[in-house]
Nucleic acid binder design. Structure first.
Length: 568
RNA sequence: GCGCCGAUAGUCUAGCUGGUCAGGACUAGGGCCUUCCAAGCCCUCGACCCGGGUUCAAAUCCCGGUCGGCGCACCA
């Protein structure tokens, strides 16, 4: 699993390249080459199958550039800022609010003024005893301006999720006003990382696949939970306890907050394993209470073990109603959902009727406000009513009102949905799959590198190879390649070098099957199919080739189930 | 951002006590040969990270930048 050999192969064979290479490059960006772009699309397509098609959710696509209002409401303009302080002498850089809190025990707002003040008053110095430079602000969002003049500030989105939240009313209407429902978005997001490292792991521009599932706040169940409660997962709880446990038990013991959350953990695991992540190098780790975002009631990360250690590849968070509440507050639009009761509830309500003939002369211009205040007043049987009108205490004596009993028909209630968000880092999953699938083994005494991608994930599905560089074999090979392509099976023909060399070439990029055209093909119209993982071969008739390959690739069938074995 | 180390064809690398056409291996392309796992032979393409300085002369020495690795810090 030499990650160096792998990285070298990924560059050489066109999976990934550093961006802007001919101009020297820059950290935090990389390009998907031809094979990489195709592999990533295969990952995204499998994600769609799991989280869009099978869940019955829909995908939307919203702008990468967002206007300032969105991120003011979401908190990114104020919260996504770090105030940094740097030592004048030793150059050490700290996040100011963390540093000050650690040294003084006092919380400080993460803005320049508060930090400056706290440093001055507390005479806060670097650990090397020297003074700090003036604090500087750093927002992790890329800022831009929209239109000429630079008047309107925009930001590149730091997550795809906000595009879903701000369309909530439209989406709710699309789903005909019923909960729960889910909305997905796959696309780019941007974070201006201070110092991106570790190759493709920390990026400034990255690909997310996010799903936002909106639930009635009191009903975080999922009909699919029954089917997955027996499945076991590797968990690391917020108390750092590692365990292998069934999802049913984890919910029952309160380790996982809700059945819905557990369901998405199960679905995430299935998706990751199906896409090629090694189950033994996969775990779900719960955020500690102090590491959790303040709006999340529970958050689990899927983590994969790589040569960089355990890295986060998926975050599954219960974001509660935080985002909708904020957008409701800032936009002034009602983002709640009306939930009709099965049966309307009849409620006897004591209603206070003001006696305006008394109140009017007594309170004059305030009388109107008083009568309005009484409309929603909860009457508890008291003989004097105290109201607060514009900060003034108004006392109504019993002469001033009557109490009448009224029957009210309540047909439902408005709720603000909670949202559970499985958020996938596609680029990291892409890398983990490559690392987990890359192996070096020995075939006929020779070392080879082989990418054991899941068959359906492989960029090139089939290589069609003439055994010899002879025109009649090449012609047949081209014919077969075109036939496969027409059937939607991505194939390549390669007639260069020896047959063994070509097998290795395709092993290295994960092509699961090689079809070889030899002399028997010309005589009897049969070809051999070679399996990447075992190097075994069978011989099948050309007329069965497409069907057999389809079975092999899309149904993960064993090569030995078809045709005559000719090797191993 | 800081510190240490590094950067030569697609890849790995020699040269780096200034001075031959910057050498090799693998890969790739063309050809010969070839009945199944990186065989052999011939030919070909191809590089000193960028900018500045020192010098008659810089891959080599100096300065700055960029990228990469590691540590610290930051981040999820």
């Amino acid at each position: 699993m030499m990650s160096r050999n792998l990285m070298e192969m990924l560059r050489r064979r066109g999976f990934i390249w550093g961006s802007f290479e001919i101009y020297g490059g820059i950290a935090g960006f990389f390009d998907y080459g031809p094979l990489g772009a195709m592999l990533r699309r295969n990952i995204e397509d499998l994600w769609r199958k799991y989280f869009v098609v099978e869940e019955g959710f829909y995908e939307i696509d919203t702008p990468l550039v967002g206007i300032e209002d969105v991120f003011v409401a979401s908190g990114h303009v104020s919260e996504f800022i770090d105030v940094l302080i740097q030592c004048k002498k030793c150059g050490a850089v700290f996040r100011a609010d963390h540093y000050i809190e650690e040294k003084t025990g006092r919380k400080v707002n993460p803005d320049i003024e508060s930090v400056r003040k706290a440093i001055r008053e507390g005479d806060i110095r670097c650990e090397c005893q020297n003074e700090f430079e003036d604090p500087v602000e750093f927002n992790l969002m890329f800022r831009t301006s929209i239109g000429p003049g630079g008047k309107k500030t925009g930001y590149l989105r730091p997550e795809t999720a906000q595009g879903i939240f701000i369309n909530f009313q439209r989406l709710l209407n699309f789903y005909r006003n019923r909960l729960p429902f889910g909305v997905a978005q796959i696309g780019r997001a941007f974070r201006n990382e201070i110092s991106p490292r570790q190759g493709v792991i920390r990026l400034r521009e990255f690909n997310q696949a996010e799903l936002e599932v909106f639930f009635h706040p009191a009903e975080k169940n999922h009909p699919g939970f029954k089917k997955v409660e027996g499945e076991t997962v590797n968990l690391v709880t917020k108390f750092e306890e590692a365990m292998e446990i069934s999802l049913g038990e984890a919910v029952e013991r309160g380790i996982i907050d809700s059945p819905a959350l557990a369901y998405f953990i199960a679905l995430t695991k299935k998706f990751l394993v199906d896409s090629g992540v090694d189950e033994k190098r996969l775990r779900f780790r719960q955020h500690r209470d102090d590491e959790k975002a303040h709006y999340a009631s529970d958050c689990w990360d899927a983590e994969a073990l790589t040569s960089y250690g355990w890295i986060e590849i998926v975050g599954i968070a219960d974001r509660t109603d935080y985002d909708l509440r904020k957008h409701m507050e800032y936009s002034g639009k009602d983002l709640s959902v009306f939930i009709q009761y099965p049966e309307p509830v009849r409620k006897i309500k004591k209603k206070v009727i003001p006696r305006m003939d008394v109140i009017g002369p007594e309170f004059r211009e305030k009388a109107g406000k008083i009568s309005r205040a009484l409309e929603n007043f909860e009457y508890g049987g008291e003989d004097r009513i105290v109201l607060d009108i514009d900060g003034e205490k108004i006392v109504l004596t019993e002469k001033m009102f009557e109490v009448r009993e009224e029957e009210e028909l309540i047909t439902g209630e408005r709720v603000l949905p909670h949202v559970i968000e499985p958020s996938f880092g596609i680029d990291r999953i892409f890398y983990v799959i490559l690392e987990h699938c890359y192996e070096e083994d020995v075939v006929d005494g020779e070392r080879r590198s082989v990418l054991r991608l899941k068959r359906r994930m492989a960029p090139v599905k089939v290589a069609v190879l003439p055994l010899l560089t002879k025109e009649d074999m090449i012609d047949v090979a081209l014919e077969i390649r075109d036939e496969l392509k027409k059937e939607g099976i991505f194939s390549e023909m390669d007639d260069s070098g020896s047959i063994g060399r070509r097998y290795r070439r395709f092993d290295e990029v994960g092509t699961p099957f090689c079809v070889t055209v030899d002399h028997e093909t010309l005589r009897e119209n049969t070809v051999t199919i070679r399996d990447r993982d075992t190097t075994s071969q069978i011989r099948v008739h050309r007329k069965d080739l497409v069907d057999v390959l389809r079975e092999l690739i899309y149904n993960e069938r064993d090569l030995m189930d078809f045709g005559v074995v000719v090797r191993k």
